[in-house]
């Protein structure tokens, strides 16, 4: 089936089955590989993107559910005020190790701060516990979110 989806402000026409997860449309069809595959079952958060500003797991989001929504990925999140702040905090706090999960972490954090400018520790835990980091960078993610919130 032919779908027209809007990613990072640009329209793209893709021809895939209607149940194809958005993740694979982004990565394999459109070549936007910043969004990562981790589990395929919405268990790890590596594939997190925004649909109309809300963080979703693209590995379980069928393309036919996206419609005309605005999709934002890690490649463009730096263009938002919150996204840029978060990326800066991630660098300032030396969050990253292997880096594979960090696209998803940043997208979850960006959704959190866009809706809650000053989250408590518990709210950060709630928003971020769907994102697994195997390198164990959680403490620094928490600090970076607080830094981004404070700027």
């Amino acid at each position: 089936m032919i779908f027209t989806i809007k990613v990072n402000g640009q329209a793209h026409i893709v021809d895939v089955d209607d149940d194809t997860p958005l993740l694979w449309v982004l990565r394999d069809v459109l070549g936007m590989t910043g969004t990562k595959f981790g589990c395929g079952m919405a268990l790890c958060g590596a594939c997190t993107v925004h649909v109309d500003g809300v963080a979703i797991r693209s590995c379980v989001t069928p393309i036919d559910s996206v419609g005309t929504s605005e999709i934002t990925t890690i490649e463009a999140i730096g263009a938002t005020v919150v996204g840029a702040r978060i990326q800066k905090a991630w660098l300032d706090r030396e969050v990253v190790q292997c880096g594979y999960c960090q696209s998803g972490q940043i997208m979850s954090a960006a959704d959190l701060l866009a809706t809650n400018a000053n989250p408590t520790d518990a709210e950060i835990d709630d928003a971020m516990s769907g994102n697994i980091c195997r390198c164990g960078t959680y403490a620094r993610i928490r600090e970076a979110i607080k830094q981004a919130a404070a700027t």
């Binding site: 590989t33 990925t73 991630w90 990253v96 880096g99």
Partner: peptide, 10 residues
Amino acid sequence: DTPAKVNGTA
């Protein structure tokens, strides 16, 4: 090696 790992280009 971090900058590329926070903007999706790594």
